[in-house]
């Protein structure tokens, strides 16, 4: 079970809703993933063109918790404006703080992320900042009172997986709030790795929506997440440099 603020979730997977090949595939992928938290972006409605189907409007909103993001914001003030718009829908009070500081790498701006998180906490939001894998920054965010920290595994949409497991494990070790590995996850292997490191959850989007078969991949990441979590709870064996025989070294045949 994953607990964020006062909410508990059976699934530790947070799923993004961008860039699926079709609504039908997306719906089935979401169902198969068994996620309970879906992320969305906040944008102008395209009112001057023929009405496009909207995924959110087709969802059973009793089954899912919405986690809107502040993507598009470059400053804390812009992030707060987006967060308030999202909350005004009356559908959510959780916000993924995403303040991008560099357009090529889409890495978060640490200063503005910290500032936005502080402002949003004052406004009473449940705050989940997307942050770099900086250990001290994660601590500073936690000290502010954020409800989870979400360090990136590697750049958004890159699918490069976990490039700094040591930093992630430091963040996980020090953190008293849930740590959700967000961004850069490319495959089930990365999901299992994050969970084995002790992450409380994983947020991914393109790993599923960009797979050749998103529905099958949604199942794969669900199983990887469960396997990784079980492995973490079980406690892995000690790693050694040289071989240690698994079979008895006495009573060899022919000796």
């Amino acid at each position: 079970m994953l607990t964020i603020a006062n909410r508990t979730f059976q699934s530790r997977l947070l799923l993004g809703t961008g860039k699926y090949p079709s609504f039908e595939i997306q719906k089935e992928a979401v169902t198969q993933s068994e996620t309970e938290i879906l992320t969305f972006a906040v944008r102008r409605m395209n009112i001057f063109e023929e009405s496009q189907p909207n995924f959110l409007e087709q969802l059973d909103l009793n089954k899912y918790t919405l986690l809107p993001n502040t993507a598009g914001a470059k400053t804390a003030e812009e992030a707060v404006r987006i967060a308030k718009l999202a909350k005004a829908s009356g559908l959510c009070d959780m916000i993924k703080v995403e303040v991008i500081g560099d357009q090529r790498t889409l890495l978060p701006d640490p200063v503005e992320t910290l500032k936005a998180s502080e402002m949003l906490l004052e406004e009473g939001f449940i705050v989940l900042p997307y942050t770099s894998d900086d250990v001290v920054l994660a601590k500073r965010l936690e000290d502010l009172g954020v409800h989870a920290v979400m360090p990136g595994a590697s750049p958004i949409g890159s699918g490069k997986g976990i490039i700094n497991p040591l930093n992630l494990s430091f963040i996980i070790e020090q953190s008293k709030v849930p740590v959700i590995v967000d961004a850069g996850i490319g495959s089930p292997k990365d999901v299992a790795y994050a969970m084995e490191l002790g992450a409380d959850g994983v947020l991914l989007n393109t790993a599923v929506s960009g797979a050749k078969d998103p529905i099958k991949m949604a199942q794969a990441v669900k199983y990887a997440l469960e396997a990784g979590r079980l492995g973490y709870e079980a406690g892995r064996m000690e790693e050694k440099d040289y071989a240690v025989a698994s079979s008895p070294t006495t009573g060899m045949v022919g000796s």
Binding site: R43, M45, N54
Partner: peptide
Amino acid sequence: VEIIHFVGGG
């Protein structure tokens, strides 16, 4: 006037 809604995003 801005009319805003939710779209797919990560």
